[in-house]
Simulated assay, not measured.
Amino acid sequence: MANLTLVYGMRLLPADEIASVGEAPVTLKNGKEAHVTLHVLEGSREEIEAQLRMSIDAFFDFYPEI
């Protein structure tokens, strides 16, 4: 299997200030464009960390071949 790249970003913002969240474009070397879905986790630090761990586990469940 080829090497993979996980495209990932994080930023903490005040929960009551966010109006919407979209997706981020990724340009591939072949000229095509892919999109990265952005996710929102809210709560205390401990709650966000727990949700993030579950999200990472769930993400890799979509790709059992890797």
Rank of each mutant, 00 (worst) to 15 (best):
A15K: 12
F62W: 08
I48T: 05
A15L: 11
A19P: 00
P64F: 03
N30S: 04
D61F: 05
K32L: 13
T5E: 11
R53H: 10
V7Q: 09
A58G: 08
S44Q: 05
Y8L: 10
Y8T: 12
L4I: 11
L41H: 15
A50T: 12
E42P: 02
D16L: 09
E65L: 13
L28R: 14
K29Y: 05
G22H: 01
S55L: 15
V26G: 00
I48K: 06
L4E: 10
F62H: 13
E47H: 03
T27N: 10
L6S: 03
V7S: 11
E46K: 10
A50E: 12
T5L: 12
I18A: 06
M10N: 11
N30W: 01
I18G: 02
Q51W: 01
T5A: 13
L12F: 08
G22N: 01
H39P: 01
E47I: 02
G22V: 00
D57W: 03
L28H: 09
E47C: 04
L38T: 00
L52K: 07
N3Q: 13
D61K: 11
E46Y: 01
M1D: 12
T27P: 03
M1A: 12
M10D: 07
Y63H: 14
H39G: 01
D16S: 14
F59H: 14
T5G: 07
A50H: 07
D16N: 14
A58L: 08
M54G: 13
A24R: 03
L6E: 06
E46F: 02
L52G: 04
T37A: 15
E17M: 08
P64Q: 05
R45M: 10
A50C: 02
F60D: 06
P14L: 09
A15F: 07
A50L: 06
L38F: 00
G43I: 03
L52N: 08
F59M: 09
H35E: 07
T5M: 09
T5F: 06
K32Q: 15
E49I: 09
I66C: 08
L6T: 04
M54R: 14
P14S: 08
G43V: 03
E46R: 08
I18C: 06
G31Q: 01
M54A: 15
D61Q: 14
H35D: 03
F60G: 04
L13D: 14
V36W: 00
E23K: 00
E65P: 02
R53G: 14
L41P: 02
E23W: 00
G43K: 03
L6M: 10
E42A: 15
S44E: 09
E42K: 15
A24Q: 04
E17T: 12
M1V: 07
K29L: 12
M54P: 02
K29T: 12
K29W: 04
I48R: 10
P64G: 05
D61G: 07
H35Q: 09
Q51M: 08
L28A: 12
R45K: 11
A24M: 08
E42F: 02
E33R: 13
L12P: 03
F62R: 15
P14F: 05
A2G: 08
V40G: 01
E17P: 02
R45G: 15
E23G: 00
V21Q: 00
N30R: 01
E65S: 13
H39Q: 10
I66P: 02
Q51R: 06
K29H: 07
T27Y: 11
R11F: 05
A58T: 11
M54K: 15
L6Q: 04
A19T: 13
Y8D: 06
R11Y: 06
A50M: 04
H39S: 12
L13C: 11
